[in-house]
Computed example of a mutant assay.
Amino acid sequence: MKWDIFCSVVDNFGDIGVTWRLARQLVAEHGLHVRLWVDDVAAFARICPQASPDASEQLQLGVEVRHWHSQWQPVEPANVVIEAFACELPATYVRAITESKRRILWLNLEYLSAEDWVSGCHGLPSLQSGGVQKYFFFPGFTESTGGLLREAGLLTQRQDFVANEQARQQFLRSIGVEPIAGARLMSLFTYESAGLSSWLDVLEQDSQCTQLLVPEGRILADLGRWLAVDDLKAGDSHRRGALQINILPFIEQRQYDQLLWCCDFNAVRGEDSFLRAQWAGRPLLWHIYQQEEGAHWEKMQAFLSLYCRDLSPLAGAAITSFWQAWSAQESVAEPWQAVLLYWDELSAHAEKWCEQQAEYQDLATTLVQFQQNWL
């Protein structure tokens, strides 16, 4: 059974991060032949270091990775075609789908959302020109959606890793971090933020030491301004008051998972890191991608309403205020102090949320089941 997944890289690494994980899982756990079509192979090579950023086609971890560019060469469509995040397929490929004598399942894999309307739209068909149906497939946080991307045994791997202090210490040292005994360990991988300096001010003056691990990314310019340091780079280390900052190299997906597992709190961005932070079972900040006319606010609030349902009102208000202030580019000093007041409750809730979401079927499996039912 052959599957084609098309990915147009929009948000640096969120789109390719999701589709690369999905492609690997479909191959490894479901025995499928998967072609991953990517329009920015260089972005793919950042999260898959062994990949060539210039190759037009290559085999990586069982996935056939193809460069998708303007000079499209016609190919025979696969049995299942996934149009990830509403990217526009090549016109000749669409024509081949409509003219094929084989039944081809065409899916539009949508962005992850907790909004109420998602359940009602999941799995609905849309008639395309040529009489072919395209189905909307929505990942989500309820059993009436397509579920979440989660590899088999992921939570067990995380639990084993967290329980093994030596493994955690070795991993941190392998990425250039010397752990500080007793420090609160946190990761920072967000978009640019005007509120960052207010957060760092609080951490600098805190009574407890914080070790902040910052992978290379868009937040480095703001961080450099706060430190009064130009051109921060991987391997740099800076100490101010109770705050120790370590700049990390850009790391591949499995290492990023382990980084999240090591930390007590994770500030993340984009769909891939947002979901992986949830599987880490730790309190988190999601810096949602800003959309026109404030559409991102509804999406963020929908998740917070669901996520905070089992929290006490005060703890829910604390994490909500922190997220809102960060995305509004406002000071997060007071909201962060509120988060610290409810730290134990938020930590226990993050683990419980992770376990609850793991009770639902994972995204790759629901995709395969949808295709089998369609047949």
Rank of each mutant, 00 (worst) to 15 (best):
V41P: 08
P139S: 07
G140Y: 10
V75A: 15
A28K: 11
P49I: 00
A96Q: 12
Y111K: 04
T98S: 15
S144C: 12
V65C: 01
V94M: 13
V63Q: 04
W68C: 08
W117M: 06
E64F: 11
A91N: 09
S52P: 03
E57A: 07
R102S: 15
L89E: 07
I97F: 09
G140C: 10
H67N: 10
W106K: 13
S52W: 00
A51M: 12
E99M: 11
A55V: 04
S113T: 14
E64L: 11
T92C: 10
N79D: 15
H33N: 10
A28P: 03
V118D: 08
G146T: 01
V81E: 11
C121Q: 14
W72F: 13
A42L: 11
L107T: 04
L124P: 00
F85N: 09
A86W: 00
L149S: 05
Q128R: 14
S56H: 15
G146F: 00
G123V: 09
R102N: 14
E76W: 03
I82P: 00
E64R: 15
E115D: 06
Y135G: 06
S119N: 09
D54Y: 10
F136G: 00
V38L: 02
L124V: 05
V94A: 09
S126N: 13
E88W: 08
L109P: 14
P77V: 12
R150E: 03
S100Q: 05
R150C: 13
E143W: 00
E110R: 01
D116L: 14
Q133W: 13
T98P: 04
V65S: 02
Q73L: 11
R35G: 08
P74Y: 08
T98G: 15
F137L: 11
L112G: 08
F138A: 02
G31W: 02
E76G: 09
F85R: 10
A86F: 03
A51S: 15
S113H: 05
Y93N: 13
P125M: 11
R35D: 12
E83H: 06
G62L: 08
V65G: 01
Q73N: 12
H122P: 12
G147P: 04
F44C: 05
G140A: 07
L112W: 09
S56F: 15
A28H: 13
W106F: 15
F137S: 11
V65I: 10
R102A: 14
V65P: 01
E143L: 00
V81Q: 09
A45P: 01
E29R: 01
S119P: 01
E57D: 12
V41Q: 14
V80Q: 06
W106S: 10
A78R: 04
C48W: 05
V27S: 05
L89G: 05
F141P: 00
A91M: 06
W72Y: 15
L127R: 14
E83R: 12
E76A: 15
R46A: 10
T145V: 01
A43F: 03
P53Q: 02
P90H: 06
S144A: 15
V41W: 03
R103P: 04
I97M: 12
A84Q: 14
D39T: 06
W106P: 07
S52D: 15
